[in-house]
Write a protein that binds this DNA or RNA. Sequence first.
DNA 1: CTGAAAGCGCTAACAG
DNA 2: CTGTTAGCGCTTTCAG
Lengths: 319, 319
Amino acid sequence: MVTIHDVAKLASVSPATVSRVLSGKAVNATLTEQVRVAAEQLGYRPNRRAQSLRSRRSKLVGLIIPDIENPFFTAIARGVEDALEPEGYSVVLCNSDSDVAKETRYIEVAVSEAMAGVVIAPASAGTDLAPLLDRNSAVVVIDRDPLTVETDVVVLADRESSSALVRELMSRGYERIACITGPADVETSVRRSEGWRDAHRDQGRPVPEDLLVFSDYRFSGGREAMHRLYAASHPSDAVFVANNLMAVGVIESMREHAEERALAIFGALPRGAERPSECLIADAPGRELGRVAARRLLGRIGDASTPVRRDVLPVSLLG
Amino acid sequence: MVTIHDVAKLASVSPATVSRVLSGKAVNATLTEQVRVAAEQLGYRPNRRAQSLRSRRSKLVGLIIPDIENPFFTAIARGVEDALEPEGYSVVLCNSDSDVAKETRYIEVAVSEAMAGVVIAPASAGTDLAPLLDRNSAVVVIDRDPLTVETDVVVLADRESSSALVRELMSRGYERIACITGPADVETSVRRSEGWRDAHRDQGRPVPEDLLVFSDYRFSGGREAMHRLYAASHPSDAVFVANNLMAVGVIESMREHAEERALAIFGALPRGAERPSECLIADAPGRELGRVAARRLLGRIGDASTPVRRDVLPVSLLG
DNA sequence: CTGAAAGCGCTAACAG
DNA sequence: CTGTTAGCGCTTTCAG
């Protein structure tokens, strides 16, 4: 391994000077050149562990998401990279798989690798951000708001958009609108089902609680929820599905049962997915969410003292 | 930041003893207990940068993939995690986006963060693994075989499976079978189109080179390729598509043009994707590939001197 | 503007 | 089995 000392020796300067040249500090042009040449010649690569051990700074940002197979979260990843790369940060992705234990491990990794910051979409309400916050790491929580802790937060207008979606179904004449939402301990899942309730209340209709199904945010969750809906003797003519992946499961299930319902879906379907004839979609702006979150993170890395902020991104309706 | 010294002081032992306790080395049970308690009480978390700077070991593995939106690569990620987590490694994902510059940056990150190893699906033939190899990092190349460098490699039986797929189309009576493949500088793309050629030769048919289209491995690539195929006055009755995402684009395009062709696709379609009535699929075993690659990597981390190995995974045909 | 010296937090030799 | 001593490779005072 070629170190800063080797470069220093070859360039006939002190290690300190090499360090200064490489971090762009003011150094005599001749020496600068000598150092550059020497570093190049030896194929010198700085050791970031040593750098950040000493300087207590780092250019690595962790992005912890609950489901790498969900295009919504991969879009977020793109957005985060969009905003962070130009600033010289590298983004590494950690897939918690909606598993709090796995998530905890990644949080520990972020802490012990002394990452510059973390953007996290918590797996559930049980997520413990304390290890990060105790060390005053820069943290931005996205998509799901822990509510109990003080961090920057960037979320979608879940409740309002869900409500708008359901009202649109109503205006198209649907009467019995079911709601398939995610786990009860995931915040978006609750907010979206609240939106479904709001829509009913707004229209002075009773909320059909018998048509509310809690599930999980996966393909299989959508299928199971739909099965439960079939099994129950509570007929519905439309379904509000609180997440894109579940919607795919719902659609699969409808095809298998040769049934069709109008659908309103929170989040864009994966590219190429088939869809029923009547299908409203709330287009969750993942990439934009990632960008905004990354910008907040940069702000926080730069100045830890600014008051925390909560951004709520609007969601546009398609179809 | 609470260090090993703080723990040592509280436990009335030397820092070395604390280190030993925490890394599970033989230490008197009483002292061990004292250290445990002290560490717990202070909320001590080891600083991995310092650990690995000193010990030249690390428990972080990088997985560099060209497209995070492709379910094939996310399945690989799952497989890698399956095999590495039980061994105490953490996997971070890096999305090169098929961009060699971005990929180079991630390779540099892996080097300078002194990661324990790297699993990489190279963005293209232009990928330079030298920074990794120069440092004798453990490296396993997957999916795409650089051929020019000496590393462990895990790939799919691209050529054979593609050929089998096309032969199956032939046996079903299709005469003019087009081939839509990826970039010419991506190895799988070439191997898969070779498979298409093989099938023709096996059957003693001339290879219809006018039906071969190079594109890229994305949705849009599939669409464009299909447009080119429509525009050219070379009719075809079936299409072999060398990648799942392109296939989605092809299917979209067919629907828009109200045309239908039989399809043979290398790689499973994303969940929920609609498909034409005649549709053969080669089910690329991403998760398994990830597992095998991770096992190779563990072997290599453990012993750098074993001869490199090349695994070729079979691909089963569906539909 | 440059060099020498002192660590960042940790582990690996070396004694005892 | 345990403590002391020396650094890993780098940046950052502090003098000059």
